[in-house]
Design a binder for these strands. Sequence first.
DNA 1: GAATTTCATTCTGTATATTGAACGACGATC
DNA 2: GATCGTCGTTCAATATACAGAATGAAATTC
Lengths: 275, 275
Amino acid sequence: MTEAPPRSARPDRDLAHAVEASKAPAISRAAAVLRLLGKSHAPLGLQTIARELGLVPSTCLYVLRALVAEEFVAFDADTKRYSLEAGVLTLARDWLAGNRFNDLAQPLIDRISRRFELTVLGVHIVGLDHIVVVATSQSGTNFQLSAQVGSRFPALISATGRCIAAFGGHSDVELESRFKTLRWDEPPGFDEWRAQVEQTKRQGFAIDAGNYISGVTVLAAPVWKTRAKMSHALVAIGIGSALQRNGLPALQSALVSAAGELSNQLGGQVSAGWN
Amino acid sequence: MTEAPPRSARPDRDLAHAVEASKAPAISRAAAVLRLLGKSHAPLGLQTIARELGLVPSTCLYVLRALVAEEFVAFDADTKRYSLEAGVLTLARDWLAGNRFNDLAQPLIDRISRRFELTVLGVHIVGLDHIVVVATSQSGTNFQLSAQVGSRFPALISATGRCIAAFGGHSDVELESRFKTLRWDEPPGFDEWRAQVEQTKRQGFAIDAGNYISGVTVLAAPVWKTRAKMSHALVAIGIGSALQRNGLPALQSALVSAAGELSNQLGGQVSAGWN
DNA sequence: GAATTTCATTCTGTATATTGAACGACGATC
DNA sequence: GATCGTCGTTCAATATACAGAATGAAATTC
């Protein structure tokens, strides 16, 4: 009778692993809770959260209480439901304040966005497997291909991915294993992709012609914090057919030259700002 | 002999207290680390962080490692220094996505900002002692009085504070004790302030005429999520002398009417969005 | 409106996260 | 160029955060 079909069936094995390895498991749990609340489209109750993450309810309760006390999580005393609190905005502002890339990149991407009437992003390469959008600029005229600041993408996807593969200094075996996990609208074969990466090395920027999203062309140019380390990229996103007409070569050189300018500015002064 | 004079003299007694009371002290420590890194204008080393927060270095190291693993903290392997990582942006985006107030408020404050040529903010009331700026709109023409999204202020400061005092349902003793901790350019006396709060109750909005910042006038109108609970406020900020000329009464009614409209929209549908 | 499931929360013993000292390595100082 | 100070890191003992059962409250069902 009490059949209890497992609703979510996936009590977050990654979390279990992270908790096991860490010397501060409470922090892993807290991070998992925050991300779960972030993904959720509505406030969640204690049991739901615990079930979803594979946590013991009592432990989960203590985690939530601590997060509420720190103003990262909001608690509605009437409904007993939890959601993200505005405190997370403060951290984001602090990060942006200490980040020179954004201040320098914004005017450059604004200019390119206006001139070519498309969406331009600044992205930050975090770790070895993710990138985060940190600056955006959309031309009002185009029906905008929008991406919000804070969005995360797999490192190797689309044009940015080819840049990272070309300039990130990762081993071939690692590239191949990560490549297999990617989701594309129209996936390139691995050999085909390898060839495109090689071309990216030669020409200094990458193109994704409809692979990631059908009909959408993406350009990416690398930005170097130091000579050795590619830290960011500038990304232009437009409708493929429109781009062919409006002078792809001009966009390419504009993007590459802006990225180069940024690299110089970031590499120059070492002491102020740190990302 | 081992006198060990305390360098920073203030190893964060609040943190010590929070850790003591909590059943998940690691989370309090992690939050303190994040906030410290946020405030800092440069990456920090392990010892510096531990000293500043009154933590044992080894414990602090484990906290930092966990935060790095969760991509909330960046670690420079060369300099062994820690700073905030872009992962915090993702949480902020998630919060914004689940928040109907912002979407509804932005066009309204844009309109008021353009019409009266001043800075208009949407603020979120978090807990009993802080507000957070969640939306901003600056008129390009004025030399902008800027405030960034994510900025935190004491709940009772300036015009917003008078609104919270008037409509927040807090006890008089609590109001007085919190009032004493505030920092103003030109502090009002407590009795004077009480009278202004009473006036705010009657007229439905608040004015700060140069108290918080000399020469700057601030208006605030309350936004109600439910009949009982003031959850947000709309805030207009301008140069005092300019405001007197440009029709303060018109601004007042525009602000109050926008706040009322928001209250209706937020109170209406209960199920979508939650802040 | 009573019964029953589901929820949030408290409680207690134990596995373990935290502590403080010791280690090794780097950089500054004289 | 040797010494000293400071840094990041490891390790073993123990104070304690956490898992699981028990409790009470609140919906939900019949």
